[in-house]
């Protein structure tokens, strides 16, 4: 579904991604872990071109999205993204947050979008918040809404960048529950996270990123039981 070929990204002199190669298949739940500053976020953000790669290719459903001729807005409709800081739109109600893009882009009319919104809110048990503003929600609720906002576009793949890292500990569970349920529904997911329990349980493949490359990858079972690289062992000894 997504093939990444020799992806490089530099910020000035800072060579952050140094040749990433990977293929993400439909239905996979790829969990990206690794030490801070290793390029996990940059990699994820390159996938939907929030960061422009310095070189390399990203092929999404047969289309090279790094080609300047590619209409990135059309690609992004099919790639949801969930941010660490939620980035809900504070001036809009929850309903408007969710329906803005599908209606604006002409994918649904108001009624269809509202119906989809109600259905999604029910799925994350936040129906009563439809007319509230983001300011009145807890962190966990905000992140569940952010997930739902992306889902309203009916994306083919969902990207998560540390979706629980800015949450109070007691709210992490409710967000992971929603992600777990999403995984079960068959969604293709790429998740950057420090939640090793989630990686082990939900992930179908773990990518260990360090200093701009995928140093090691494996199924969760193998990865956690038999890490091969020294850096991986060192990292796991710190986080487990």
């Amino acid at each position: 579904m997504i093939t990444v070929v020799d992806l490089h990204k530099s910020f000035g002199d800072n060579h952050v991604l140094r040749g990433i190669n990977d293929t993400i298949e439909q239905g996979e739940k790829v969990v990206v872990i690794g030490p801070s500053g290793g390029g996990k976020s940059t990699f994820l953000r390159c996938l939907n071109l929030l960061e422009r790669p310095t070189s390399g290719q990203i092929i999404f459903d047969g289309e090279d999205i790094t080609d300047p001729k590619c209409n990135i807005n059309l690609v992004r409709r099919r790639m949801g993204m969930v941010f660490q800081n939620f980035n809900l739109f504070p001036h809009l109600t929850i309903r408007k947050n969710i329906t803005l893009a599908p209606v604006k882009l002409g994918l649904m009319n108001r009624e269809e979008a509202d119906a989809r919104c109600d259905e999604l809110l029910k799925r994350v048990s936040l129906s009563q918040k439809a007319e509230a503003y983001p300011g009145s929600l807890s962190g966990g609720q905000k992140q569940r809404i952010a997930i739902v906002r992306s889902l309203a576009m009916n994306p083919d793949v969902m990207l998560f960048d540390e979706p629980t890292s800015s949450l109070d500990p007691e709210m992490v569970g409710e967000v992971l529950d929603v992600m777990r349920e999403l995984a079960l529904s068959g969604m293709t997911m790429v998740v950057v996270t420090h939640e090793m329990g989630f990686a082990r349980e939900v992930g179908t493949r773990i990518l260990f990123m360090d200093r701009g490359i995928i140093l090691e990858q494996n199924t969760p079972k193998e990865f956690f039981a038999n890490p091969k690289e020294e850096r991986t062992k060192e990292f796991l000894s710190k986080v487990l």
């Binding site: 939907n48 807005n73 409709r77 941010f83 980035n87 809900l88 992306s150």
Partner: peptide, 9 residues
Amino acid sequence: EAGRSLGLS
């Protein structure tokens, strides 16, 4: 970024 990631121009 949130707006653009939803496909909005």
